[in-house]
């Protein structure tokens, strides 16, 4: 699958410094927030295929209904502002949604589940490249109340459903970073949007590295079966957006996956040098968390040799 291979020139290279430490690294979001790559239709088709094959890639608590509608309207409105052939017309609580690119035309009434063919989050989640998570704000904490996540990176939405922000990040080193991040998110005013980048390396170009699918990708990764590092090993950049939803104050968390083969990283000497430097200086606990114990040095060596 060629999911979001990032062949366009606008690859969001995730490393801003020659060393990497886990941090909140947020910056104000700039349009477009929702990515439309050259392989847009393929990515959306894959998203639907995974969801239809495994319905637990979608979760929603009963109390997430309002926030899910809030997220739906925000996402559709955002698409209408950013993309061609897409429009959202509103008359009171009544909306008419047109996505000419996908041939979707839908009238719905805000809050009335019977007016949509499926849950608001999957209705929206099938039409964007990004995974969609709704974090409800209650009692000065954020809670994973709902989501459609088909491209998780070594986590499982079905398992994490219902967790607090702190519980979600339990396995990540540097928990204090996430205490501050949660406080920051809870202070975000409605409508605000922020962006952060996360990264990793993987042995293939699969966007779906969920634990749910790990029997499909895990064995090869553990054996580190690589024949051609430059074309098989990929830099995985996650473009994450955090949006404070206007009506409910829930936080909408969008995760877009962009994969770039190491050969393409090597083609940009500044990126290559930076990735080598980051891999060479990665703290042990981060290397272990990102599972880069062997893959990291392998990638760094290949990049170094490709410039000899």
């Amino acid at each position: 699958m060629s999911g979001a291979t990032g062949k366009d020139s606008s690859y969001p290279f995730p490393l801003a410094h020659d060393t990497y430490r886990i941090s909140a690294n947020v910056e104000p979001a700039a349009a477009p927030i929702l990515h439309v790559g050259a392989d847009h239709a393929d990515v959306l088709a894959l998203r639907s295929r995974i969801l239809d094959g495994e319905p637990r890639r979608f979760v929603a608590a009963p109390h997430a209904a309002a926030a899910s509608w809030d997220a739906l309207v925000w996402l559709l409105d955002r698409m209408a502002r950013e993309q061609a052939g897409v429009s959202l017309e509103r008359d009171g609580h009544r909306y008419r949604w047109t996505n000419a690119r996908l041939g979707v035309e839908q009238e719905f009434v805000f809050g009335d589940a019977s007016t949509l063919p499926e849950h608001p989050l999957t209705f929206a989640g099938r039409q964007v490249e990004e995974d969609v998570v709704v974090l409800g704000a209650r009692g000065d904490r954020l809670w994973l109340d709902a989501g459609m996540v088909v491209f998780a990176s070594v986590w499982s939405l079905a398992f994490d459903h219902g967790m607090s922000f702190a519980e979600l990040h339990g396995p990540v080193p540097s928990p204090e970073v996430f205490v501050r991040a949660e406080r920051f998110l809870l202070r975000m005013p409605p409508g605000d949007a922020w962006r952060r980048l996360n990264w990793g390396l993987q042995l293939d170009d699969r966007p779906d590295l969920s634990l749910d699918a790990s029997p499909a990708w895990g064995p090869r990764r553990r054996r580190l079966e690589v024949h051609d590092v430059g074309s098989e090993v990929h830099l995985r950049t996650e473009v994450q957006h955090l949006v404070r939803l206007p009506m409910t104050g829930a936080v909408l968390f969008l995760i877009g996956v962009r994969l770039l083969p190491l050969a393409a990283v090597a083609a940009v000497p500044a990126w290559s040098a930076r990735l080598v430097s980051v891999l060479d200086t990665l703290p042990a606990e981060v290397r272990s968390y990102k599972d880069l114990g062997v893959l990291g040095p392998m990638a760094a060596d290949w990049l170094r040799r490709s410039h000899e």
């Binding site: 459903h161 219902g162 790990s214 029997p215």
Partner: peptide
């Protein structure tokens, strides 16, 4: 359920009252 070999992670779900089983 599926015969997958799992490592039991130190990650608990309040919702499932369960620990995460990570496929090996």
């Amino acid at each position: 359920g599926c015969g997958t070999d799992l490592d039991v992670a130190d990650h608990v779900s309040r919702r499932h009252g369960a620990f995460l089983g990570v496929p090996r």
